[in-house]
Design a protein around this nucleic acid. Sequence first.
RNA 1: GGGCCUGUAGUCGAGAGGUUAAGACGCCACCCUGACAUGGUGGAGAUCCCAGGUUCGAAUCCUGGCAGGCCCACCA
Length: 743
Amino acid sequence: MFEDIEIKWQKIWNERKKTYDLNKPIIAIDTPPPFTSGTLHMGHILSYSYIDFIARYLMLKGNQVFYPQGWDAQGFPTEMKIEAKYGRDLPREEFRQRCIQWSYEMIDKMKEQMKRMGYMIDWGHEYITMVPEYHEKVQKSIIEMWRQGEIYRDNHPVLWCPHCRSAIAKAELEDKEMDSVLYDINFGNVTISTTRPELLHACVAIAVHPDDPRYKSIIGKNAKLPIYDREVKIIADQDVSRDFGTGAVMICTYGDYQDLIWQKRHNLEVIEAIDKEGRLKNSKYDGMTIDKAREAIVKDLKSIGAIERERHYKKIVKVHDRCKNPVELMYSYEWFASLKKHKDELIDIAKMINWYPEFGIYHYIDWLNNLDWDWIISRDRIFGTPIPFYVCEYCNNIEPADELPFYPEKAKPKMCKQCGNQMKPEIKVLDVWVDSSITPLIVSKYYENIDFHNKVFPNFIRIQGLEIVRTWALYTIYRVWKLTGQIPWKNILLNGNVLAPDGKKMSKSLGNVISPDDLLKEYPVDALRQWAAMSGALAKDRPFSYEDIKYAKAFLIKYWNASKYVLSKLKPVTDVKLRKVDRWILHRLSELIEKVQKSMDNYQFREAIVSLQQFYWNEFCDYYLEYTKWRFNNEVDGAIYTLKKVQEEFSKMFSIFAPHLAYEVYWQIFGKEIEDWPNFKFSDPEAVKQVEIFNQEVSKVRTYKISNRLSMKAELDKWKLETNLDPELKEELKQVMHIKELI
RNA sequence: GGGCCUGUAGUCGAGAGGUUAAGACGCCACCCUGACAUGGUGGAGAUCCCAGGUUCGAAUCCUGGCAGGCCCACCA
């Protein structure tokens, strides 16, 4: 129904080149570069609509708004797609090219969707993380941080998938329930419980609970490993669970995450138990796979009578989401950024930013307080920004690349300044969060145009999901602080997830996914945008609501029809005499402007859109419009002035949420585009008071007519007035409700 | 186990010390009244999760429960 209007205005907006007057202030917005999956989901619609509301509001208020869009192209999901299509054996460069090509196709699709949503993005300043120019900026930033001592390479425990032979990120873990056996193994003076006897050779201590009466006497003594005949210390730690197994545990480096904590806490030695292919090392079972070694050692332990008990139970094991194989903790050379040592500083910096909602900052603070180690910024992948360093394998010296962008395949040879040997270009790539954590600097053109940067920085606002506060927001604040000494933005706004209507997460497997494209077949764009505004409190997960979007569509139709009415009545006015009802609605309009403004200043989109809807439908259409009808036979200029004024100012405000229709309506009345925010004030409290009583009287007449099965138009000979009305409103009542005489 | 968020008609939700506790969906009845039947008008429907406390006054503030959700950690 409104499609022609949508197409008309999108064409106008998208073909217009945006220009900026550099002599005036500019407000920059840091929007999320979406991962280039090829389709926007409801969560995208929610957050990009939020951004657009803010951008349009700020623009109407007279600001120059700089609002570009980026794309987070690199990373694991794209590699998976390409692997699925072309297999695992493509040469690196060809693989990368395939990824790039695929990403461009996806970007085109998503860009079309964004344009269709009417977002006023400045497409002249798009950025894509996979292009050489972007790589260069990321690499520059990393080298700069390395110079500051923020980046280092270290041998460090990482999550390792022996099957894929790669370090993986915490986010790539999945839980899997597996059958397991808990063995009680006798160590002489103590019996420990373990599910991983094959790690016995990497046992570096025994731990018991400090208050466990069974073991109090042996704390500090040694115990002897069976088979290996090596002695380890018995230590106390409050993390040991007294009820589990025997209440005594062997600490191995590393059986699991808890082992790592204990090793650090008690400063224990490290024995590497498993190699990168998942075979044992430093043991009597070297070369065996983990499963084989477990079988073998259990047999050996049984033969010497060291196993006292076996218990079968189900255990949750962390597996790699890609191959479903158990993940090991393992030493590996990786690159790190020194996040942890700046904990307090980073909390102080975050407090300089306004968080909407305020509790968002606690997600940030809690995460920082619970950080176990620094940010691992390297990945064993292909489709990513190369790490711009050379490494000397002989003396571990590191040198940054001389020419950027740096690609290891094309890197010039380099000799180590320390030992004279040939250095190796690093072939690992950077974590994708390294790419995306400088978006405020990309937006502000820090690496291209320092004058522009100085002008817009810190950016006005960042909008992002609550669940990535601990990654994107944290890494951005950290990196931008180190690179520029400033906060990245003055404000940060957090949005929640869109759930399925039943309150569950949308997922393909549950078949409850609602897509924007499907909705747009049935609902106008401006309805979808209103849904976003109506969807509620910030940073709160909300089920998708068909009620809301249906209402939004109905509201658009209402607005359109009322506009038709107003348009049909318009004519030049000369003698504007305002009646009390005019003064009432103008007063209410003036209040509405203030209220919506306040809501928008606080990013309360729901409050703003609901105020607009309620005013327009329940006051303007349901009452005021009806009050004007009889006047077209008489003195009508006051009504025309008022209708036009409400329509004008309302359309301006409504255009934040429903730009297509609002611009069209405004265009039809004024022959130009909306260009500013309402600047209209009107106050007449006395008229408001009287008209509110009048409205109640109207209701009474309506009730009477209904209970007597009369049409609203039916004429009444007499009506007994029980309240005191002004003569003008008495006349109004007679005319509006078709009453001959008031008694 | 730790942190955070949320409990208001059948459903969704506004309200943030004083209102007859908005509005929407759904339900019932009537009305094609000069834009709109994708509409209009009216109606029924709420011990504002529970228990204490602060206050002249609490849905609103405090304390303690109970329930749900999210994130994190998690038993070797």
